[in-house]
Design a protein around this nucleic acid. Sequence first.
RNA 1: GUGGGUGUAGCUCAGUCGGUAGAGCACUGGGUUGUGAUCCCAGGUGUCGCGGGUUCAAGUCCCGUCACUCACCCCA
Length: 421
Amino acid sequence: MTTPFAAPKGVPDYFPPNSAAFTAVRSALLGATARAGYGYIELPVFEDTALFARGVGESTDVVSKEMYTFTDRGGRSITLRPEGTAGVMRAVIEHGLDRGQLPVKLAYAAQFFRAEQPQAGRYRQFHQVGVEAIGVDDPALDAEVIAIADEGFRALGLTGYRLELTSLGDATCRPQYREKLQAFLAKLPLDEDTRRRAEINPLRVLDDKRPEVRELVAEAPLMLDNLSPETLEHYERVKAHLGDLGVKYVENPRMVRGLDYYTKTTFEFVHDGLGAQSGIGGGGRYDGLMAQLGGQELSGVGFGLGVDRALLACQVEGLAVGDATRCDVYGVPLGDAARSRLVGIGAPLRAAGVRYDMAYGGKGLKGAMKGADRSGARFALVLGERDIEAGVAQLKELATGEQREVPLADVVTEVRRALER
RNA sequence: GUGGGUGUAGCUCAGUCGGUAGAGCACUGGGUUGUGAUCCCAGGUGUCGCGGGUUCAAGUCCCGUCACUCACCCCA
């Protein structure tokens, strides 16, 4: 039971057969981005610590206490990426990707790291599929981004989630609202912790889970009621475009974001079957981020979708995702001559696109047939001395038990024909 | 950082009043010398997380410790 090594705390291992579902979820989410014209970007797992401090926000919990940060041999402070957007912005600025036609549309599937206390659906290494659309402040683009995420989840067959939507205002109306909210909160009989939170990020107080606090803030002013005319117009158009796209949503004016860079449109996909960690994806607009990181004054909008949590959601909903079978045809040799023939046949079969595996290790016939069964293969290809002399092989369909002889010379063609039926 | 729960076979878990190791699945072999899954038979399944204590005797009770897990804080 006790093994010499165990995985570091809070990191998931995905292995067969369930890893097939993991990769299927990731592919489904990434596939939705590719169908909307997003190009794939692969970035380093670690970056200069200052990039995240500046991009994500010094005052956020992510930066202040939840990053994996270390000093490399050159004395530089390095951090394992806690989220995707800052790194993408860095690459866009560094390589001048924003000098061509806008928007720049980029997608990624990557792993991220946060040194949080793990719990159900919250890992220290987690996987996200994300997009960033940079350089055009068009409400239609916000709507497209949201619709892509929704398509990804729907492609998996998920139904038990909802889309929550709000607007966080912009650089002009948010500071005004923030003051207004803080003035309101200052008059309430709040405990010390909550008062401190009200100073750092007053929006969080609105999302407090405690009933007594909820009651106190029930009448608090909301950002949605204090948007500037321009921001309100932007938000209304996003909602209209979501209608055009047939995406359903509910407004949640008390939504909380942990990252400082969000502006205007903000959204979250919430699944109710996952326990306390109910968010399966989220994102929004971040109009000041590029400039903050030393780039042009360009707007941006994007999302991050949790692959781990989407997988959990699929399991909760009982969805069969991905194909866990390892091969289509499984070779069962009887004797060394047959073994050589079946080894050799692997090359042309695989070249023809057939997934082929066989019994290795000198197993008996019974063991080899069992291997065929466990592999999930549709056919077993049985070959013995008698068959070789006759110039044939036995092709057995495992589900039905039906077996027929095929000419050894035409095995590839015969197998492909059989698989097409 | 704080609180609860759980640690027994590879996996999922039983284990009564403290009395000397259990089930299912999986795995291996056989029933079938050239046929899997189904069925029958046989078989390893083991530091009962680790350390200490109480006791004639501890998986069981007590203390400590570690790990996992759920939740709080916070959050994709």
